[in-house]
Design a protein around this nucleic acid. Structure first.
Lengths: 343, 343
DNA sequence: TTGTATGCGTTATCAT
DNA sequence: ATGATAACGCATACAA
């Protein structure tokens, strides 16, 4: 029978004919209660349909069972899969997930800081390269926090993501294996910390193959489609053309692709292109994009596991936790075009 | 100065030299407190950085300021944008958003039911066609709830979505205006309630144009890419070909597109195709898909506004709240091919 | 092993 | 207009 008001621990105690202290113990420290009593309590719980009132419990304990996840943009195609991993892991441990998006607005970030101050969240997951709390960031008393997907610039927060250097390396190595030696890198040194590492992977791959780097074909954009298009214009204007484009992310790769197609070139016949991230659209591009896949769900799972460990008193890892990204071979890479090899 | 422990209402009261009751009033009923006192309290709040402890407040009030959003799959491309609308509206009213995904598993649904029973959420947003709480669904005492994006089958829950009939009508009308008379409908009568309405829009459009329906070119799939491919096989096997395909959603449209391309046809020269939803990939398809756009963020905003109204004691609307979806014209529709007109 | 009693931080009732 | 205090539901220190 479901009454009109939720059963409390007192209802259970009355039916089980014990004190509320015993009920509480039977639930949270079953080993400290006699078998017979535990049985009675469990029956009473079944009868009443009792569920611990989380608000009261949190108040008493001084901490909640909620994790706040803050992202600048919930709509980010990378976000949803990470969220799946976060949610699965959290739920498995009795935690719930609170969502916040800041749209890069410090004011909105502040509102989430209030959430934290009012004890509504026990921990914090940051899907952003920078603490989103504006000026207050320095003085803020943050709960245990973990960054996902990209390092958090300020605050010394542990981070779970992908080994960008190793990932980028896989992309260059593929290009080199196909026979390319003039490989452009379309990067982005400003937007995300991780992007700098991808360039490091690029340089390391070139170096390992004995190819001397050519700064004329290394461009810094801003990680957008437009940025890729722009890079094409610049490269053609300078008349220093590569045979392949290694792009810092899939967006840039799409821009490169569109710019090249607009000029009448065929991909991958005339030029090869690689991306990074494997966003959902990558498979729909024309041609489909060869790229580096982020294990997004896995990243989410690991990040939440780390956070829960921190909450349980675990020591923060000395450094970052980097997962290995996979190369996804599709149709945007082939051998270098003879046309350009002649130069 | 930020102390190591959050300031409580008592800290504020002490500094302001008033009682905690006055502090509480100054915050929640400013008009019931003298101007001078209110000033002192506000100063004390500024000094201490006090924020109301939400757990304590919720416990006392018997309700929380969290809204639970349950979806079968967080990764659904439709979900994230709706979430943006939900979150914006909720935050603007001091509410936070809790995320749950059930993966169509009743067991997981039950865990969220506990969330609700333990007073952790004041309201419920359902992004699913059916209450996800298994057997308990009937007896469950649900808080005020609102469905988004698709009607909730059981439970008589108000719903905010799109006018599927009107949307489908826009698609047929476009096709008819282009000169098509043999328009196939690739539907899905099982997965989502909304899909049935889209078929109604299709039939209404045909009827309005004086085209008699041909059941041989109306197929029921299951809303997946594969389902679209299958439809092509069936249609070709029966040798009853349309000049245009109106699909119940973008997934199906993609399947149709792939099936046709695999058979060597050109779209839109040989066949026209329309989808429904305007998923993010629609623009990347080859050709880009003409489809009906779901105003996702808007749906989220309206749904949350309705829920908050319900929470505030508002009356539930007598029926559904339907927004008008727009036709997005891209490159998958043109005039009928002569080749097929001959039949 | 079990029970009693206190306090977590609020808000609301009732005095003053 | 303001203050004292009870109660929300729970977990735990302390007693028994």
């Amino acid at each position: 029978m479901s009454h009109s008001t939720p059963a409390t621990i007192e209802d259970v105690a009355r039916i089980a004919e014990v004190s509320i202290a015993t009920v509480s113990r039977a639930i949270h420290n079953p080993e400290k209660v006699a078998n017979s009593t535990r049985l009675k309590v469990n029956q009473a719980i079944a009868i009443t349909g009792y569920t611990t009132n989380a608000m009261a419990r949190s108040l008493r304990l001084g901490r909640s069972n909620m994790i706040l996840v803050v992202a600048p943009d919930i709509g980010d195609p990378n976000f949803s899969n990470i969220l799946v991993g976060l949610e699965n892991e959290a739920r498995a441990h009795g935690y719930g997930i609170l969502i916040g998006h800041t749209q890069n607005d410090a004011q909105r970030g502040l509102e989430y800081l209030k959430f934290l101050n009012s004890n509504q969240a026990a921990g914090l997951i940051l899907f952003t390269g920078i603490l989103p709390f504006g000026h207050q960031t320095m003085t803020a008393r943050l709960p245990p926090s973990v960054g996902v997907f990209e390092p958090v610039f300020n605050g010394g927060i542990p981070y779970v993501g992908v080994d960008d250097i190793a990932g980028a390396r896989k992309a260059v190595d593929l290009l080199i294996a196909e026979g390319h030696t003039r490989i452009a890198f379309i990067g982005d040194s400003r937007t995300r910390l991780a992007y700098g590492r991808r360039r490091m992977g690029y340089e390391a791959g070139l170096d390992a193959a004995g190819i001397s780097p050519d700064l004329r074909i290394v461009l810094e954009g801003d990680g957008t489609i437009e940025s890729g298009r722009l890079a094409i214009e610049q490269l053609f204007m300078r008349d220093t053309l590569p045979t392949a484009f290694m792009c810092v992310n899939d967006q840039t790769a799409l821009g490169i692709m569109l710019g090249l197609i607009a000029r009448g070139y065929d991909i991958p016949r005339d030029f090869s292109i690689t991306g990074f991230d494997d966003v959902p659209q990558a498979v729909f591009m024309q041609p489909s994009l060869t790229t580096i896949r982020q294990p997004r769900t896995l990243i989410g799972r690991h990040a939440m596991a780390l956070l829960l460990d921190l909450l349980g008193g675990g020591e923060p890892p000395e450094s970052e936790i980097l997962l290995v990204p996979d190369l996804v071979v599709r149709n945007s890479v082939s051998v270098p075009s003879r046309q350009w090899l002649k130069r």
